[in-house]
Amino acid sequence: MSVLDRDIPYRNVLMVIPKRRVEKEIPLKKGYSYIPYEDALFEPWCQLQTACNLFDSLEEAKWCLSRFLEEDRAFFEDNFLFVVDEERTLVASAGLWPGHHFEEERLRVHYVAVLEQAQHQGIARAMLSKLCVHYDSIPSRYPLYLATQSQSYAAIFMYSRLGFTPYLGAYKEHTKEESEADWEFVTEILKEKSYSA
């Protein structure tokens, strides 16, 4: 997991796990642990997301988190993960949240973020495995999906190692041909950056 590479042209792409592939949760490394959401995490979550370039400003992150909590606080608390280090500093977060890329609402992996100083510790992979296992306990239908972008090529590589594959079909305001062209572009970026998804 890394921050977005803003030097890469932006292309939105979707990835899916078409059926259950993650059989067990990958544990966090020693020194990191999960904690439940509490209001004291509001500001740190927003700072984390902004530091990872998932929002353009802290205000935008605050608006988004406020909206999540207003829409369904209980669902947010049950389906988002918060990872802290030994000093209880929030270093990572990811969750499941309803997505609207298809005709019917379906759950997606959302807002995967790991602070730079905590990256390359397997935290994102551990969180994604935990979310995939958790998804199996929810009355949902596969595929589980996520939206990502060309600027997140390191994350795309990590997602592919967990079993997510490129979605090449049509979705909201996106044709099959556009999906295929976007993935062709992303595949070239992965090759250029020495990742093989």
Score class of each variant (00 low, 15 high):
11 R>C: 05
17 I>N: 02
44 P>H: 02
147 A>K: 14
192 E>I: 01
189 I>W: 03
1 M>W: 03
174 H>V: 14
118 A>R: 07
162 L>A: 07
93 S>W: 06
48 L>M: 01
70 E>D: 13
181 A>Y: 07
168 L>K: 10
133 V>A: 10
77 E>Q: 15
188 E>N: 09
105 E>F: 02
52 C>S: 05
42 F>R: 01
47 Q>F: 00
96 L>K: 09
32 Y>W: 01
125 R>L: 11
157 F>Y: 15
62 K>H: 12
176 K>L: 10
63 W>K: 10
126 A>D: 10
140 S>D: 12
167 Y>V: 07
149 Q>Y: 13
13 V>W: 09
183 W>V: 05
17 I>P: 00
123 I>R: 04
135 Y>D: 06
11 R>S: 05
155 A>F: 13
125 R>K: 15
133 V>N: 12
120 H>C: 11
105 E>K: 07
97 W>E: 10
98 P>R: 06
93 S>I: 09
86 E>G: 06
143 P>K: 08
106 R>V: 04
63 W>R: 06
169 G>P: 05
23 E>Q: 06
99 G>C: 07
162 L>M: 14
152 S>C: 14
155 A>T: 12
157 F>C: 12
32 Y>L: 01
177 E>G: 02
11 R>W: 02
53 N>V: 00
114 V>A: 04
27 P>L: 01
81 L>H: 05
103 E>P: 04
146 L>P: 08
101 H>P: 02
93 S>E: 14
90 L>K: 10
150 S>A: 15
45 W>V: 10
100 H>R: 11
25 E>L: 03
69 L>M: 04
8 I>Y: 02
104 E>S: 09
60 E>F: 03
193 K>R: 15
120 H>T: 13
70 E>F: 08
169 G>H: 04
122 G>I: 10
118 A>E: 10
182 D>C: 09
80 F>E: 08
170 A>M: 06
86 E>W: 03
184 E>A: 13
88 R>E: 15
1 M>V: 08
27 P>M: 02
53 N>E: 05
69 L>R: 03
17 I>L: 15
76 F>V: 13
40 A>V: 03
108 R>F: 05
196 S>T: 10
164 F>P: 08
79 N>P: 10
175 T>S: 15
82 F>V: 11
101 H>T: 01
109 V>A: 05
123 I>F: 07
